[in-house]
């Protein structure tokens, strides 16, 4: 049976891991490669590697860092942050990333999804959406959550699927960083709106939050950064807890 994925995010700025609270007050905390290796050893299913500074400073993702990560780990990883052309996307895949995600650039120029998917394949292209509850719907925000678009998140997710996205990474801006659990209504409606795998992001604070999002929504994976990074949730304990509660989760056999 296909396992639900536990995914760790590494927010990287200038080659170092950082984690923001509600996208601000960023504090530097560590070496991304050492962190990625540690996550693999602890049984994480996938790693998302986000160059959070790329979008605002308009500079590209470090291909050398992507290649170093590809050399260091043996589990899938995804890279994104400020990617805006097919050439940039292909270069990140060639550098060794298994998947890439696009966010702001795809909202501004939806044909980017179509063009990129035709080169790297839909399965390797994820569309990341930052959404915030506004007057009766979920509105898409771009540029690191700083700019409202007037676009409805569910409408946009369906359009991304039509254009060739292979996965949706949905971040609830309301839940992100406050550790009060995943945004269940958002994740439920979004995972029902599309036929693609959906990754829930934003809000993980305790192990029960993961059980909740897997029990109450159709998401394929749940992503967290700080709770793993600061060891507030131990990945193996989380996986054991989910298995005990009937969630399909990958566990590594000993010996």
């Amino acid at each position: 049976m296909l396992a639900k994925r536990i995914i760790a995010a590494l927010d990287v700025q200038k080659g170092r891991v950082v984690k923001g609270i509600k996208f601000q007050n960023i504090v530097e905390t560590g070496d991304p490669i050492a962190q990625a290796i540690a996550y693999e050893e602890h049984g994480i299913d996938e790693i998302v590697f986000l160059d959070i500074s790329a979008s605002r400073e308009c500079r590209g993702i470090s291909q050398a860092l992507v290649t170093d990560i590809a050399k260091a780990i043996h589990i899938p990883f995804m890279v994104g942050g400020g990617l805006s052309t097919v050439e940039e996307i292909v270069s990140v895949i060639k550098a060794g990333a298994d998947k890439v995600f696009v966010n702001s650039a795809a909202v501004k120029n939806p044909s980017l999804i179509e063009k990129a998917a035709s080169v790297i394949g839909s399965a390797n292209l994820c569309v990341a959406i930052d959404a915030k509850w506004e007057a009766g719907g979920y509105e898409v925000y771009v540029n690191g959550g700083s700019e409202a678009t007037g676009l409805d998140a569910l409408v946009w997710a369906k359009e991304a699927q039509r254009l060739g996205a292979g996965e949706i990474l949905i971040t609830s801006m309301d839940a992100d960083g406050v550790k009060q659990g995943f945004d269940i209504p958002l994740n439920r409606s979004l995972s029902e709106a599309v036929d693609l795998p959906v990754i829930a992001s934003g809000g993980a604070g305790k192990t029960e939050d993961f059980l909740e999002v897997f029990s109450l929504t159709a998401v394929s994976g749940a992503l967290a950064a700080s709770v793993f990074h600061y060891g507030e949730i131990e990945i193996r304990s989380l996986k054991n807890y989910l298995i005990e509660n009937g969630v399909s989760i990958r566990h590594e056999r000993n010996g």
């Binding site: 994925r5 795998p197 394929s220």
Partner: peptide, 11 residues
């Protein structure tokens, strides 16, 4: 009639 792609860890 199923979520596509089949993506993730399976047995």
């Amino acid at each position: 009639k199923i979520r596509v792609p089949h993506m993730g860890w399976n047995q």
